[in-house]
Every structure is written in C-alpha cells, then in structure tokens.
C-alpha cells in the first residue's frame, strides 16, 4: 500500500465535465472519504481518445505530452485518470516517449514551439481504480462504510483498456524486438491482466456481492466505434448485458465513462427492440461506494444515469 502517493494530479477528461458528471462528482466524494487528494489539472486538453491516434501519431503524442507537462508544472509525478480511454492514451504516450528517443526529442521541441514547458521527466499515469485500491484499499473502504450495500449483486465491468495492453501499463517495453527493462514501475500496482479484481474487492468491502462475470468483464463494448459501427457495438453490448443478467446481477458497476455511455445507450436500443435479458442498469463504481459511505442518491447524481438504477437500489433499501 501507499506506492503511488496520496496527492496526485487529477485528469478528469472531457467526458467527466459533461455527460459523465456523475462520475466526477462521485469520484471526488470517494477520494475525500478515503483521505486522498485530487489536484485538478488546470487547463488540460483532450487526450485524443481512441480516435486521434488513428489520424495522427505525432499530434496525439503532443496532446498527451501537453497534459504531462501541465502536471509537471503543478509539481506532480503521478497523473490519475478515471477514464479507461484517458489513462490508456497517457500511458501509450508514456510508452512511446520512453522507448523512442527520437519521438521524445521531437515532442519536446514541438512543445517548446507551442509555448508549453518541455518535459523534464515523464509522469506516470494510473487508472483511478488502481489508485483507490493501493492508496486506500478494501480495509479503508470497510472502515468508511456506513450503509453496506447488503444484498446488491454486482457485475463488475472493467472494459478493455484498464488492463490492456500490459506493456503500455506495465514494467517493460519492447523496443526493436528486445525486451528491455525500462524502469521497474507498475509491476506492483497494475491489476491482474486477465482476471482483474480491484473493483470486486472494493465493492465487496462495501458489502456488495460480485456475480460471476468472466469473460465478459473485459469484453469490449464497441468502444471507439459506438457511434460509427452500430451493428458491432450492439452485439457486444448485448452479450455483456445478457451475461450479467443471466448470472443474476442487479446492477453493472462501471469504471469508464465511455463504456458506461455505450452500455446505457445500447441497453436502451436493445430494449426497444425487445431483446430479452438486457435490462440491467449501470452505475459507476464510485456512485455505489458513495452510497455505501452514507451519501444520498442525489449526492452521487444517480439520476444522471440514463439506465436508471434507482428502482433496483430502492428495492434493496440502498438509496
């Protein structure tokens, strides 16, 4: 415990300041309760998500390097992002900056040209779930729980980029065919690649029960193609929702605004089409933790969720 740091730069990402406001609000609540401090990254820009990287390599490096530079300016070595896409983008940039000297130098020159401080050091990015797990952990969550989520059966949905790919998020890089130890960084903090369990552990500590959800817990929701390739996304979301429902879940816990939006949007469309077993609502894991810590449904903005988890939570007397 305690390897990442209690005070970190917080990169919320565009989504959390708009449609996923609930995630932002509840994340702040949970962090405060767990005694952790988020230092808002002033004037950040979009990480480029999964889209820009297909259009421009250097441009995407620059977008992320600018955010890293802002974090350095605020005196941080660690950035925490609550979105799978954002944490992936920052980690990807970290990987290329670290393994490719030419990229690093070019990026720094361009940053200078654009009026941004060049990087003296490359800050490391963690997903907020890892941070909560390592800096607070299940024990602390248990201590803080005032209203246990008793009887709530949760399907913990991690999505793709929280665990994948391991060498952006992990210890070593493959530079030019050789496995090089770049620096021993994330080996101790990253979640299990194929069987992630941090969210299960935190929610279980808050009194919830996790249902069996493999392998759908890391199955793609359609992600960056949610809007551009509806047929595929719809099928993937159907598989996820049906597995959750048939395994007895009351609710799906999410940890990425894009996964969350995709699940909710396609859940709605699938229900319109009359597809069976897709009516499990979704909530951010921080919303559920917030409820367990004694906050009201209004505090964690449960009404923002389009899939409306309130009836289920009310039935169990949790909201």
């Amino acid at each position: 415990m305690g390897v990442i740091g209690k005070r970190v730069a917080y990169y919320p990402g565009c989504s959390l300041e708009g449609a996923a406001r609930a995630y932002d609000v509840s994340t702040r609540i949970v962090a405060k309760e767990l005694g952790l401090e988020l230092d808002y990254l002033e004037d950040y820009n979009c990480c480029g998500a999964m889209e820009s990287k297909n259009v421009t390599f250097m441009g995407t490096m620059l977008l992320n390097a600018r955010n890293m530079s802002l974090a350095r300016k605020q005196g941080h070595n660690v950035i925490v992002a609550p979105c799978n896409g954002c944490s992936f983008s920052l980690q990807r940039a970290e990987y290329f900056l670290e393994t490719d000297r030419a990229v690093f130098e070019k990026v720094n020159a361009l940053l200078r040209e654009g009026g941004v401080d060049p990087l003296d050091q490359i800050p490391q990015t963690y997903h907020i779930l890892e941070w909560f797990y390592h800096e607070a952990g299940p024990q602390k969550v248990k201590e803080k729980t005032r209203k246990p989520l008793r009887g709530l059966k949760v399907a913990n949905y991690y999505g793709c980029l929280y665990t994948r790919p391991h060498f952006y998020a992990r210890t070593y890089a493959h530079a030019g065919g050789q496995e090089e130890e770049v620096r021993p960084r994330r080996r101790d903090t990253a979640d299990d690649d194929e069987h992630p369990y941090y969210m299960n552990a935190l929610l279980e500590a808050a009194g919830a029960t996790s249902v069996e959800f493999e392998p759908m817990h890391t199955q793609c929701c359609g992600g960056p193609h949610s809007l551009s390739d509806e047929a595929v996304s719809e099928k993937f979301v159907m598989m996820i929702l049906q597995t959750a429902k048939r395994n007895g879940a009351d609710i799906i816990a999410t940890e990425c605004p894009l996964c969350h939006a995709s699940l909710e949007m396609y859940r709605h469309r699938l229900m319109l089409k009359g597809v069976p077993d897709v009516d499990v609502p979704a909530a951010y894991f921080t919303q559920l933790l917030g409820l367990a810590f004694g906050y009201s449904a209004n505090d964690v903005k449960l009404k923002d969720n389009l899939s409306d988890p309130l009836p289920v939570l009310k039935r169990l007397g949790l909201a």
Binding site: G18, A19, C46, N54, S228, D229, A261
Partner: peptide, 22 residues
C-alpha cells in the same frame, strides 16, 4: 465509417482543445 468519425473527432479536438459529447 470509422475514419470519418476519427477525423471528425480529431478536428473537434484541434479546434477547441476539448470535445463535448452532445
């Protein structure tokens, strides 16, 4: 389709620095 979307997205980022879901 995905290329169209990628471009559309990237241009929005380039213009404003941030995106907006709506």
């Amino acid at each position: 389709p995905s290329k169209k979307f990628d471009k559309f997205f990237t241009e929005s980022v380039l213009e404003y620095g941030r995106i907006e879901d709506g």
